[in-house]
Amino acid sequence: MLDVRDVLKSYDGRAVVNRVTFEVAPGEIFALLGPNGAGKTTLIRMITDILRPDAGTIRLDGRAVADRARNEIAYLPEERGLYRRSKTIETLAYYGELKGLSARDARRSAMTLLERVELRDWALKPIQALSKGMQQKVQLCTVLIGDPRLLILDEPFTGLDPLNVQMFETLLSERRAAGATVLLSTHQMNKVEELCDRALMINRGHMVLYGAVRDIRRRYSDHAVVLRTASRLGAVPGVRSIVAGNGEATLTLEGSTTPQSVLRALLDHGVEVESFALASPPLEDIFVKVVREGLGLDHGQSGPPTVEPVAAIAGAR
């Protein structure tokens, strides 16, 4: 679907996107992560052909993005707005027509979308009469109209209440089921864990993490297991420390101990195990750790931060 190869973009001799390579498969929800100023927006602007890379290629289904049909990609930027004085339906229909729909089809699709996001009654109202949340929903509709195959969403959940977030997620799932691909850029790591199959994290223009979200979390786990049990835990062979609370205990293992041997030992000691899983840190902790490591390079080292995990995971699907 989307193939980004060795893409470089520099401003005033400084690389803001430095040799970034990744792929997004059809129907995938892919997270693009990174701290502020990491180069995410520049990368997205190159994918949408708003900016041209200095080097490297960006292809959509084998064709350069510059040669794609304009209705194939839709982009919801982080900083977004609408024509405040235009009617809601006209605004949406305008986006539809720009994506190649006829005037009639654009209006029909716009109305269908407005019904879907419960804004039918606001179709003939000017955008400025809508609340901020309603405007957010209209902005989402501008992306969905014309059924683009690649949706690029930058912080799409900002300003939405939980109900609308749920509606949004349902819409995304429907689009995904229909074969659309989603590139999601957000700082809400819980949403990445919840929605995304794979992720790419960049920091200061360099790739620092790339792979399946589950694999990334596993890679950053501290060789520990999480155990849910009602039994009281004593010393367990091969376990360095136990932190318990709320019916759950995190057991940090010694280097040579395997999770299987610990589970066996627990069962042998008569512990009633309700659940047993490898402990993996939340993505947010990984994000903070990776970014901090990257920032630490400012004090004495140079070059791309934390490249090792990328090398290890790169290419993994």
């Binding site: 304009r70 209705n71 930027p77 900083e79």
Partner: peptide, 14 residues
């Protein structure tokens, strides 16, 4: 001023 351009520029060239 209304930050509408970036989403437009994905669909229509400058």
């Amino acid at each position: 001023e209304s930050r509408i351009l970036e989403s437009l520029l994905c669909t229509v060239s400058a």
